[in-house]
Design a protein around this nucleic acid. Structure first.
Length: 1068
RNA sequence: GGGCCAAUAGCUCAAUUAGGUUGAGCGCCACUCUGAUAAGGUGGAGGCUCUCGGUUCAAAUCCGAGUUGGCCCA
């Protein structure tokens, strides 16, 4: 492309973006950009790997766009950025998808299909999904190393997980444990607490009486899981709670029931007792040690049989005024808190339920039944045994498997743990080493989570994952003797079989058969795979292929920057910190940017399954990639959610269209004049720079400074605001308007060259500033501006630095004052009912300070021109314009302290007062009614406001909310003004009629017009030469066949007819 | 049920990070300009700052309770 080539009149994102894609391909734009920075300082970014199920949604799109804008920014700042994208490809979600595809129902189907085949299916599925994501991300214009993403299923990466785990083991942080975990009975695996999703469901709600063994009566418990009653081991109470004994009567029989005082009415109501009476008041402490009979002792013969079982104990999880009865049925074989307390009390852990949720032989009568199916039978048996006080149902939120939506069960099984709780202090300390945006995310949310984090259960009884690299002796069931393998090399060395370290696949089907023999002992592998969260937790070194490739680890690790949404606080932010600390004792990242979620326009969460979503592809179809990116990036990235908004998208498109117009406006002139930016630089035209040029260059400097600061604060949205304000407000609406005439001039001049050089610099730097946000349009404009002289891509440009030479705060203020005066003048004009087309005799500028005086004096002509005023009259701050009246405005920050609770009253009086001169005496006099003895109005309390005479309208002007003066437009009429005003009206109508005929700008016409008011007709005829020139009328004569129209203008009727001269000649 | 975050114009957000008469952009309406023209300019309407209490002469801002939404956890 050569410089200043013709460009489309219209900004058409789709065509443009397609061309840019092709162009990037053609010149290897990405590769060149990476190479260009290869000598720069290293910057280690780690991509949080999206999970490979499903396609990119608006949230991922926002996430990747944010990453892209920061990576591009960092590159422009000169860093050699590590930008390897990653994909999280293991785990239960993919297994369940594949199971669905294959029509599987349970683990047995998988075993029949074959582990190896199943793993292959999972791999294929994950890779398929990965391709879709890759395509989407590239389509959004994200620049990362797409040719070489890290995949958690590759041996190099899996090895990184092994290595991290073995380091943790070396540090004594790996142990096998018997724990209460959340189990999905369908997937037949433990799932992590953060994989449990809560949903409202209807469950049984039963009240059960446990008969007391050595005294009268029963204690009453409540549960929504009858199936846990067989495993009951003890009952817990709140030591400090209040309990009562109640004598209750139903159907003529009396019972003695013990429940919490706060709950007794509710419980007795549930039990439909006819009458009752509180007969005893006890503290929880008094209940301790009471023993009771297991209500299903016969049905479950293997029930717990231990010293001290079936007695009442204290536990801190009991609440006497929550749900239930204040006495809690506790089964250490199921509930997590029950388990902890049961262990403290030294009870055996009785769990008669298998991983599939079916009672084992220990379940006695219920053996072989799925626990939830056994609920009715158990309830019935309790009733038969006389233990059921009430039974019904309850709606409550209950945990479900995040993938298959099956209700989870709490059971106790053998699992492997990283004992995070042993290094809690280190974790909390390491938090301090990372900088978070926003800060509260770290100091509130994240810290709270880390403080409460339990040991990390990393084992899953599934197939598609990184196998645990643990080998244990064949016949032992503890973790006293174990081998943790750290990498493929060690594996090849130690196993009994022949393994090639370079091409061994580490998946379950491969490693399950490998054994290790040490002396007389044969070790076999623990069959579990890792929790998928462990996969991504090692990304900071997995990205570098460490340990198999150790060339960059020392230099780069830990990561400089990570950027994810707030759901990762408990996800990746946490798992990385946990793993980094367990394996290496350090936080694996130094800076975190935590963004929010993408919400629907009405604020609802997006949800693919409910079809509540906005598809990024639709956004692209409607507005293009640049617009979508700019919209996404214009949102605060720090912790707050973003509402998608189609109007916001449209606004961004309008801004880009404005930019496009600004960019293409000077091109024809530059082409015509053969302007060469390499020959005519800003330095060359320094002498000829006009004030407005210097001003726009000064604004450019402060825009760059503001943007850089905002970027460094991780507020790219504020940087974008600053850029848009500069381009749309300062460049388009002001600079281009002001500079047009200089470019129209046909002869060469210093002034014109200065304007060219200025706008060239402005455009070129603005486009560099825009490039991280809108890489496509930036590329196109950059290519047109630079031709052969620039880089092959704008993304190789340096981030524009502030040029001190052009910094000029004073000038920026001056021009903002002039613009404020101009705006106020336009406002005042409108109030006075005088259109801009009509000149006004004078505009009076009353300046509040010398700066304003200064600015107006230097730019009187500019102001006259812009305001279409015959004269500008300046009133200096020391003087008053004597034609004015005054009122006073109160300053509450002064009135408040002085008048206390009467401040409001005084304010109203001040605001209503009207006085002839702006003096304290006058105003005090006017508000004397509300002033009490000794009170006075001081200078600081009021500012005086002008009241204008007729035919004059005044509007205050100011900058940044501070008043700096008032512009008064005197709209009175004179013959001269009416003459020009009406003449301009005629000109404007003729121009419109020329447009009706679609005449060329240069085409000559014959003109006829008549005005039905004699005085005005005379006035207008004084300006007939002006009219003829402006509308290119060579002849003033009667027009017969031409275009004829009648207009109503400012109370008179004007009839106009025109005819192109060429047409008239042809018809002669 | 608990923790964190948010709530200001129809929409998206500001309000100088220990209170002082609420602002911008977009949208809407009216007017206007016409050598960027499916552009540009000016104005207007539109707010009990989510609710209820409290502190204070004065609260969008500080405190307490609640409501709604989002995320996380149980």
């Amino acid at each position: 492309m050569s410089r200043f080539d013709e460009v489309d009149d219209q900004y058409d994102p789709h065509e443009l973006e397609q061309q840019v894609f092709e162009y990037w391909d053609e010149v290897d734009a990405y590769e060149q950009t990476v190479e260009h920075r290869s000598d720069g300082e290293s910057y280690f970014f780690v991509d949080g790997p999206p999970y490979t199920s499903g396609s990119a949604h608006m949230g991922t799109t926002w996430n990747k766009s944010l990453k892209d804008v920061y990576l591009r920014f960092l590159r422009m700042q000169g860093y050699d950025v590590t930008d390897r994208p990653g994909y999280d490809m293991h785990g239960l979600p993919i297994e369940t998808r594949v199971e669905e595809r294959l029509g599987f129902e349970n683990k047995q189907d998988i075993e029949e299909f074959g582990e190896e085949n199943f793993i292959q299916e999972c791999k294929d599925y994950a890779n398929e999904q990965l391709e879709g994501l890759q395509e989407d991300f590239q389509d959004f214009g994200v620049w990362m190393d797409w040719d070489d993403p890290y995949r958690t299923v590759e041996p190099e990466y899996m090895e990184a997980a092994w290595w991290g785990f073995s380091k943790a083991a070396d540090r004594g942080l790996v142990e096998k444990g018997h724990r209460s975990i959340s189990q999905c009975p369908r997937c037949e695996t433990a799932i992590a607490n953060n994989e449990v999703e809560y949903e409202d469901v209807e469950d049984p709600s039963i009240y059960v009486k446990f008969d007391l063994a050595d005294r009268d009566g029963s204690i009453v418990i409540w549960t929504t899981t009858p199936w846990t009653v067989p495993a009951n081991t003890f009952v817990a109470v709140d030591e400090d709670g209040d309990y009562v004994g109640v004598r209750a009567e139903k159907d003529g029989e009396e019972e003695l029931l013990y429940v919490a005082d706060a709950k007794h009415e509710e419980v007795l109501k549930e039990g439909r007792y006819d009458d009752y009476e509180v007969v005893e008041e006890l503290s929880g402490e008094e209940l301790l040690g009471w023993s009771y009979e297991h209500p299903l002792a016969e049905e479950v013969p293997d029930h717990v049989d231990a010293e001290g079982a079936f007695e009442v104990y204290a536990a801190d999880y009991v609440d006497t005024d929550g749900d239930g009865t204040g006495l809690v049925h506790s089964a250490p074989g199921h509930g997590e808190v029950d388990f902890e307390r049961g262990r403290e009390l030294g009870f055996p852990i009785f769990c008669p339920v298998g991983g599939d949720g079916v009672y084992t032989e220990e379940g006695g009568k219920y053996a072989g039944q799925f626990v939830k199916d056994a609920d009715p039978e158990i309830t019935a048996d309790l009733e038969d045994n006389g233990a059921l006080l009430a039974s019904g149902t309850v709606n409550h939120s209950y945990g479900h498997c995040w993938r298959c939506d099956t209700g989870i069960l709490q059971i106790v099984t053998d699992q492997w743990f990283i004992t995070i709780t042993d290094i809690k202090e280190d974790l909390l300390e390491n938090i301090e080493d990372s900088e978070w945006h926003p800060e509260w995310a770290r100091d509130n949310r994240f810290r709270d989570f880390v403080e409460e984090a339990p040991d990390w259960n990393v084992s899953r009884q599934r197939y598609w994952g990184i196998p645990l690299p643990i080998w244990t002796p064949e016949d032992r069931d503890d973790d006293e003797d174990r081998i943790v393998v750290s990498d493929r090399e060690e594996l090849a060395e130690r196993v009994d079989q022949d393994v090639d370290a370079d091409d061994v696949d580490l998946h379950k089907d491969t490693v399950d058969d490998l054994t290790i023999t040490d002396g007389d002992t044969t070790y076999t592998r623990v069959p579990d795979v890792f929790d998928v969260w462990l996969d991504s937790s090692v990304a900071s070194w997995g990205t570098l292929d460490y340990p198999s490739d150790d060339s960059r680890f020392d230099e780069l690790w830990p990561a400089d920057f990570i950027l994810e949404a707030h759901d990762q606080t408990r996800g990746w932010f946490w798992s990385q910190l946990g793993m980094g600390t367990a394996a290496l004792g350090e936080s694996p990242y130094q800076e975190v940017l935590m963004h929010g979620h993408a919400l629907m326009p009405d604020g609802r969460a997006m949800s693919k399954s409910k079809d509540i979503l906005i598809d990024p592809h639709e956004a692209i179809d409607r507005h293009g990639r640049d617009v979508m990116r700019m919209f996404l990036l214009s949102n605060n990235p720090q912790g707050e959610d973003m509402r998608f908004d189609w109007d916001g998208m449209q606004t961004m498109e309008n801004h880009l269209r404005t930019l496009w117009n600004v960019f293409r406006f000077p091109l024809p002139y530059m082409r015509l004049d053969e302007f060469d930016p390499t020959e005519t630089t800003l330095e060359d035209v320094d002498e000829d720079l006009e004030l407005i040029d210097e001003w726009v260059l000064a604004r450019l400097q402060s825009t760059k400074a503001e943007m850089t600061d905002a970027f460094e604060d991780r507020r790219q949205d504020r940087a974008l605001d600053a850029l848009i304000e500069f381009v749309v407000d300062d460049v388009s609406r002001f600079y281009v308007q002001a500079v047009r005439e200089r470019m129209w001039a046909e002869e060469d001049s210093g002034s014109k060259r200065a304007a060219y050089a200025t706008i060239y610099r402005v455009l070129r730097e603005s486009i560099a500033l825009l490039a991280p946000y809108a890489p496509f349009i930036s590329e196109e404009i950059y290519a047109t501006l630079t031709g052969e002289d620039g880089f092959d891509t704008v993304h190789m440009e340096d981030w524009p630095a502030v040029d001190e030479y052009f910094q000029d705060d004073r000038l920026e203020v001056d021009v903002s004052l002039l613009r404020a005066i101009e705006e106020a003048g336009a406002n005042a004009r409108q109030q006075a009912g005088r259109k801009l087309r009509w000149p006004v005799p004078r505009v009076v500028v009353a300046a509040d300070d010398e700066r304003v005086v200064d600015a107006v004096e230097r730019h009187t002509e500019l102001l006259e021109d812009r305001l279409n005023a015959r004269e500008i009259e300046l009133v200096s701050p020391d003087d008053r314009w004597e034609e004015l009246q005054y009122s006073a405005e109160a300053d509450m920050s002064e009135l408040g302290p002085a008048f206390g609770d009467r401040a409001g009253q005084v304010m109203n009086a001040l605001n209503e007062a009207r006085i002839d001169e702006p003096s304290l005496e006058a105003i005090e006099d006017a508000v004397s009614d509300v002033l009490e003895d000794g009170e006075e109005i001081t200078d600081e309390m009021v500012s005086f406001v002008t009241q204008t005479p007729d035919s004059v309208a005044g509007t205050a002007f100011g900058t940044d909310g501070d008043d700096r003066g008032v512009a008064y437009v005197d709209a009175s009429l004179t013959d001269d003004i009416e003459s020009e005003g009406y003449a301009r009206e005629v000109i404007r109508r003729v121009q419109e009629m020329r447009k009706d005929l679609e005449l060329d700008v240069e085409e000559r016409i014959a003109l006829e017009f008549s005005i039905d008011d004699e005085r005005i007709a005379d006035l207008v005829s004084d300006r007939k030469d002006l009219i003829s020139e402006e509308v290119r009328a060579d002849e003033r004569r009667d027009v017969e066949d031409g275009h004829r129209k009648e207009w109503e203008v400012e109370g008179v009727t004007i009839e106009i007819a025109i005819e192109p001269l060429a047409a008239a000649e042809a018809s002669d």
